[in-house]
Amino acid sequence: MEQLIKDLKLQIKNALNLEELSLEEFDENAPLFGDEGIGLDSIDILEIIVLLEKEYGIRLANPKEGKAIFQSVKTIAEYVQANRKK
């Protein structure tokens, strides 16, 4: 799990061009959306959906399903662990 979280942080940082976010400061429990946390938006969700398919073979057709999954890196990691195809 720890390695998966580490991988996801790097993959998300690269896929979303979060140039100024340091991996050390990237808290896996921080909310990904809204002003409080990392501050991602709707296009970022779609890009994370692409990432999950590309890296883990997970297809998420309806972005609405994603609300619970995309709360934080931690919740994404849990979802990936349970559903990954590769």
Binding site: L16, I43, L46, V50, E53, K54
Partner: peptide
């Protein structure tokens, strides 16, 4: 084949 939404925009 992974069309990128953030690039497409």
């Amino acid at each position: 084949f992974f069309p990128s939404p953030s690039v497409f925009v």
